[in-house]
């Protein structure tokens, strides 16, 4: 019997999530922030968690370890999260160009969020975070998988999040075909819009006018 959960608004949440078999990589230059993210991830049930202090260290680690999901900060040296993401998406040496990447950053100036979008992050979460906001992002990546776009100029998640219902012209955008081997989404999915005001402000609202390629 579904139990209404006040913590997540009026959405009836029935889904459970088992993160035990998902390996997570956390790349953040702050040791304290990494301890927070690792602690939260463990409390959610992740059992395999790797850490790196910058993008290059993360890439080196991924040559040795299998990673299913990445959390990456924006500003890092010598390689920042933007370069790391770009490398994962387009480098011939990438272990997985479709790897889900959640950028968790305090640098939420619009140009930074746009840059994150344009290099191909899957989700962007503004710091300061909470247990809830981080968990919502994990579940969003799992439940609301985004289509991928591959073109001469871009490889990454489809940056178009909105369909303009008022648009009357011919629909010329490619419509992603769903994967056939994924289980159907259970009811009561956490909506991708369960965002704080700061997150809404930080996330770029794509009006569909920018082409994916």
């Amino acid at each position: 019997m579904p139990v209404p959960s006040a913590a997540f608004g009026s959405v009836t949440v029935t889904a459970t999530y088992n993160f035990e078999r998902i390996s997570l990589l956390i790349a953040d230059p702050s040791k304290y922030m990494r301890s927070l993210l690792v602690g939260l991830a463990r409390s959610f049930g992740f059992r395999t968690i790797y850490e790196a202090a910058d993008g290059q260290s993360a890439i080196n680690l991924m040559r040795e370890r299998h990673v299913d999901l990445v959390i990456v900060d924006g500003p890092m040296t010598p390689m920042d999260g933007y370069e790391f993401t770009k490398h994962l998406r387009i480098s011939p040496e990438t272990p997985n160009p479709f790897l889900p990447i959640i950028m968790v950053s305090a640098h939420t100036e619009v140009s930074q969020v746009k840059q994150a979008r344009d290099v191909g992050v899957t989700e962007f979460l503004a710091k300061p975070i909470s247990a809830k906001t981080l968990l919502v992002r994990f579940c969003s990546v799992i439940d609301n998988q985004r289509a991928f776009v591959r073109s001469s100029k871009f490889i990454g998640p489809d940056r178009r999040r909105h369909t303009d219902q008022a648009f009357q012209g011919q629909e010329r955008r490619g419509v992603p075909q769903p994967a056939q081997d994924s289980p159907p989404h259970p009811e009561g999915l956490l909506p991708g819009g369960a965002l704080s005001q700061d997150e809404i402000k930080a996330l770029l609202k794509d009006d569909g006018k920018e082409a994916a390629a």
Binding site: R21, D143, R150, F154, P176, A179, S182, P183
Partner: peptide
């Protein structure tokens, strides 16, 4: 440009029994 949906391996793994709410 190609638009496609890769297999959702995270979904398969996260759906294993024994999960938390």
């Amino acid at each position: 440009a190609e638009v496609f949906t890769p297999p959702n391996l995270l979904k398969i793994r996260a759906s294993a029994p024994g999960g938390k709410t």
